[in-house]
Design a binder for these strands. Structure first.
Lengths: 208, 208
DNA sequence: GTCTATACCGCGATAGAC
DNA sequence: GTCTATCGCGGTATAGAC
């Protein structure tokens, strides 16, 4: 019962569009991306694309929604692990690097959205992430009270950590020129990840 | 000998355009900014603007050039100061925070350029900054050899520091929502600056 | 579901009057 | 140095055939 053209991959046109849109928006931003770019990348015409999503803004919103849910999922898994003290912090940092190494486009599109102040987005990004920040801040406070970590302002610490992890990926094209290598090569990502982990560990824990 | 409308400020139309263009490009990016937006902000028409700069790209280039030269100038002053060991690092970090607190738009436009991989720029941004990175890396290596600082990879350290300083300003609209305050208020900037300084100090130096 | 054709708008840039 | 007027292009979005 073989058909003439069997569907080799279960990827729907819709999913193909979402993948290509993520790539384009991350690469050139919302304003810098035309629906023609995306349609051409998928191999269809622009009107066909608009049949699936209705408008550029709606497509962008769906791209971002998929991104956010995957990020949260990873974060939840990392936080739920049985680990305490520094081991837990390291686990969350490395989990972030792992996700972004797989999907550097997530970081670039996130950063663009932060720069634009959420102009193209229906949802309030900060409001979504805030519960995570609050929970993490409480946890850090408790650890510092218990003498596990040196005392730092937890929220400021989290902002700095967020910047340290994201910057390497968002500014990769720029860092390429600084280190004269492709920043996104797995080895280079791993090296920077180790460096960030070591830095925060030195800052937070007393001995070794 | 008073004229009817004396020139109160020595700002030329050209400078007014550069200021407004910086604001717009930082706020909405290169693609997101139209020459109409800039002209309207100055109070002239688009053709008048093009009389001064010739093209959008040329205007953007001039905006960036002014930004770069001011940044380098500050950096040179900070580096030239008589200070050693940790005091020198702290001086450079605080000098960066001072400049960016005055001109947060510099950070936003820099970050956009890094994200875009220098697409709109004639000059190679990384090539310009690289001598600074190399010099700083050599200095850190020497200090670590002398036992002044704990050992870290100097280049990775610089990238992380770069990210820590810039992120607070570039993602300010997003951080606003996280801390429920305006991130760019002088007090909040100072607080984060102190936090970053304390973090790197704890990571780099042994005792206090 | 995908196509062709088209409406409509805003963009960057130019020409030429004042 | 600034204006009005206009060109040509590419953008999003819609209508309707297949």
């Amino acid at each position: 019962m073989a058909t003439g053209i069997p569907p080799k991959l279960p990827l729907s046109t819709r999913d193909l569009i979402l993948d290509e849109a993520l790539r384009c928006f991350a690469e050139r931003g919302y304003e810098g991306t035309s629906l023609n770019d995306i349609a051409a990348g998928v191999g269809i015409r622009r009107p066909s694309l608009l049949h699936h999503f209705g408008s550029k803004e709606a497509l962008y919103g769906d791209v971002f929604e998929r991104l956010l849910s995957e990020w949260m999922e990873r974060l939840d898994v990392a936080v739920a692990q049985q680990a305490s003290g520094w081991a837990k912090v390291e686990l969350v940092i490395r989990s972030g690097f792992d996700l972004f190494a797989e999907r550097p486009d997530y970081v670039r599109i996130m950063r663009r959205e932060a720069l634009d102040g959420g102009a193209h987005l229906g949802v309030d990004l900060a409001a979504v992430l805030r519960p995570y920040v609050e929970e993490a801040a409480r946890w850090f406070s408790a650890q510092m009270d218990a003498g596990v970590f040196r005392r730092h302002d937890p929220r400021q610490l989290l902002i700095t950590g967020y910047g340290a992890v994201l910057t390497y990926f968002s500014d990769a094209p720029f860092i390429d020129g600084l280190i004269d290598q492709s920043a996104l090569l797995p080895d280079n990502i791993a090296e920077h990840c180790d460096s960030v982990v070591a830095l925060f560990r030195a800052a937070l824990t007393e001995g070794d």
